[in-house]
Amino acid sequence: MPADLPPWQTVYWHFARWEDAGVTEKLLTALRIKARTAQGREPEPSAGVLDRQSVKGADTVGTDSRGYDASKKIDGRKRFIVTETAGLLIAVAVLAASWQDPDGGKTALLGMYLRSPVRHVFADQGFAGRFVDWARDTLKTTVEIVRKPADQQGFAVHPRRWVVEGTLARLTAHRRVARDYERHPEASEAVIRWAAINGMLGRITRGHPAQSQLRRTFAWI
Rank of each mutant, 00 (worst) to 15 (best):
M1Y: 01
P2G: 05
P2Y: 05
A3M: 04
D4F: 13
W8T: 05
T10H: 08
T10P: 04
V11M: 06
H14Y: 04
F15K: 01
D20T: 13
A21H: 04
G22Y: 06
T24Q: 14
L28E: 14
T29W: 15
A30L: 10
A30S: 10
A30M: 08
R32G: 14
I33W: 07
R36S: 11
Q39I: 03
P43T: 13
P45A: 14
G48L: 11
G48N: 15
V49M: 08
R52V: 13
Q53V: 00
Q53P: 03
V55I: 15
K56Q: 12
K56R: 09
T60E: 14
R66F: 05
R66L: 06
G67L: 10
G67K: 01
D69P: 09
D75L: 12
R77P: 13
R77W: 13
R79G: 14
R79T: 13
R79A: 12
F80Y: 14
F80W: 08
F80C: 09
V82W: 07
T83D: 03
E84H: 09
A86N: 14
A86E: 15
A91S: 15
D101G: 07
P102M: 02
G104M: 07
G104P: 08
G105Y: 00
G111C: 07
L114I: 02
P117A: 01
F122R: 04
A123H: 10
A123F: 10
D124R: 03
D124S: 14
G126D: 00
G126P: 00
A128N: 01
G129K: 03
G129Y: 02
R130P: 01
W134N: 04
R136N: 01
D137H: 08
T138M: 14
L139G: 02
T141G: 02
V143A: 01
V146A: 09
P149G: 10
D151E: 11
Q152M: 12
F155D: 05
A156V: 07
V157C: 09
P159W: 03
R160T: 00
V163G: 07
V163F: 07
E165K: 06
T167I: 04
L168A: 12
L168F: 15
R170L: 10
R179G: 01
R179A: 12
D180T: 08
E186F: 12
A187P: 07
S188G: 13
S188C: 08
I192P: 03
M200V: 03
M200D: 02
L201F: 02
G202P: 03
R206C: 05
G207W: 00
H208M: 10
L214D: 03
R215G: 01
R215L: 11
T217P: 00
W220V: 10
